[in-house]
Structure formats: structure tokens, C-alpha cells
Write a protein that binds this DNA or RNA. Sequence first.
DNA 1: AATAATTCTAACTTTTTGGTAAGTACCTGA
DNA 2: TCAGGTACTTACCAAAAAGTTAGAATTATT
Lengths: 113, 113
Amino acid sequence: MEKKEKKILPCDDNCPVKASLGLLAGKWTMMIIFQIGNDVMRYGELKRAIPSISEKMLIQELNMLVENKLVNKKAYPEIPPRVEYRLTELGLKTIPIIDKLVEFGKENLIKLS
Amino acid sequence: MEKKEKKILPCDDNCPVKASLGLLAGKWTMMIIFQIGNDVMRYGELKRAIPSISEKMLIQELNMLVENKLVNKKAYPEIPPRVEYRLTELGLKTIPIIDKLVEFGKENLIKLS
DNA sequence: AATAATTCTAACTTTTTGGTAAGTACCTGA
DNA sequence: TCAGGTACTTACCAAAAAGTTAGAATTATT
């Protein structure tokens, strides 16, 4: 009769949850990824799609996403300027996460009033 | 020849991503859910499983999770105290999210050195 | 000449979040 | 009688995140 042993994988620096959240945890990060989705989105379109975000947070997050290689940025040398954002291959791989988030929210949290 | 119309669903108060993040967005929230998983975990076990969390944050998050009905708490009237946490039905429904988070982290972020 | 459109940038402040350290309660065993 | 184990609680402080406001660049339009 041996003591029941519990297999715990401690959440240290190799914790995949921690690693993913390191990229995605910002207040607006996943909402921006959700909005870009499989499309191309201009800066202004994103702003309208997420009405409550401030301009500062929007570009700050976009820059961070570009730096982390989740989002690709293409600026056209036009006046007025046109800048397009789309998900990179890596960014596209986060979509399943967002999908589950959407599913959970729709089925359990959103009031259908 | 009509202008290409873009169907954007603005992220307002009905945004499912926003709603889900409202419950799950804390720095430690998903890691705690990840650690509880389908098991029962005592307070001390969680502490050991997430070595870098402070006691304050751990109970604070656990209380919040209980309040939001994602986690169930059972305290035994023993000395020394024993308190068990497990996911509620609602909490279990967040596991697919965590799973995708784990998958993304493992496949793209964790260095296998 | 002034205005509008678009994509930012920068300085400053406020709010939120997280960390530290200490303490509480209760019984057991040395 | 005194440390040890367990699950917290509280008060205080620091750091991180986010919000506000203003402005800059460039060209077309009025």
C-alpha cells in the first residue's frame, strides 16, 4: 500500500501556458488578433472595430505584435498613408486559441437578450 | 462594380473575446486553471506547482475564481486545515482554451535545448 | 489659406496589478 | 513549552499597464 503520488508538472520557465501568455496576455492583444483574423486590416479599420481602445494602445500593441512576429505590417508610400496589418504564419497559429475563447464566451457568458 | 464592403463585427460589450478575457485575463488565472485541470488540488499543492506565485496572488485568484463560479472550494474542518479546489462545470469548459494555449506554446515557443 | 484624412509619436497622469513581509489560528509531536 | 505544518489575511509599497491630451507629417480639397 503505497502513498498516492501526484504527478504535477510545475509551472516554471518551461511552462507552455506561461510562454504563450507572455505573447498574448495584454488587455487588447487577443482582441486585435481576433479582429485581424484571416483578413487584412488597416490601422483605421482596427480602430473602428475596437471602439474602446485608445490610439496609443492600438499602435503600441501592433508594434509589439510585429516585433513578436505575430503580425506583418505593410506600409504603402501614399498620401494619406495606408498601412495594412495581417497575421503571419505564426500569428495564424494562435487563431485556434481565439476560436476557443470565442466559443466559451458565446456559449456561457454572452446574454442573448 | 460596387465598392468592396468589409464585414466587421466591432468589439463592443457583446464581444465574446472581451467577455471571456474578463474572467480569464489575470496574470495567473489560466495557469491556475491549467494546474487544477481535471484533478483536485490543495492550496499547498498549487503553491508548489506554481513556484513563482506569491501567496497573496494565489488566494486572491482562487477567491476570484470561486466567485466567478469557475472553481469550487471545499474546506475540511480539520487541523491542520485542508482545502481542496477543483474546476466547476463551467470551469471545465475553459480547458479547451488552455489546451490550445499549451499546444501553441509547446510547438512554437518552448526551446527544446 | 484653412481643413480634412490617415497613421502615428511623445509627455504626462492615473489606475491597476503585483510583491513583500509580517501576522493569525489551531493542533500535533518533540 | 516551543517549533512545525496548513491555509490564509492585512497593510504597505513598487512596478507595470493603460488612459489623456496634444501634436506632427503630407497632400488633396474647398
